[in-house]
Design a binder for these strands. Structure first.
Length: 108
DNA sequence: AAGGTGACCGGCC
DNA sequence: TGGCCGGCCACCT
């Protein structure tokens, strides 16, 4: 198994339960590289191509759907989140902290 | 091999 | 969550 940085991110994101969201920083921190949040975003860029990785559940720390532009449409990401019970207004998740899910690397 | 790039974060104004 | 700046790490050409 190639335990690459990307794969690590994928494993974390795949563990995000429905109706929950997390931030890049949280994932980066779980990986032990809190300052490498940018890398997480990079990983997502490739990850969003994979159906196994619910990239739509990953947003920045403000709860903004910054990466929505990388999805097929413009409101696709929002639709997916709303479909899971998450309210999204103006590309921002309402009660972000309430829906926030902290990655648990111990599960790996 | 080196440089540019990127869906960010935290700190400061 | 208004805006700007530096840092950090891996991927791509």
């Amino acid at each position: 198994m190639e335990a690459n940085f990307f794969d690590r991110v994928y494993q974390i994101v795949k563990q995000i339960p429905p109706g929950k969201v997390t931030s890049y920083g949280a994932i980066a921190k779980a990986l032990g590289a809190a300052r490498s949040a940018r890398m997480v975003g990079w990983a997502m860029n490739a990850a969003h191509n994979l159906e196994d990785v619910p990239a739509h559940r990953v947003v920045n720390r403000k709860g903004l759907l910054t990466g929505k532009h990388h999805f097929d449409g413009t409101n696709l990401m929002q639709q997916l989140l709303e479909s899971e019970g998450i309210t999204v207004v103006d590309n921002q998740i309402v009660d972000f902290e309430k829906h926030f899910w902290q990655p648990d690397i111990s599960e790996l």
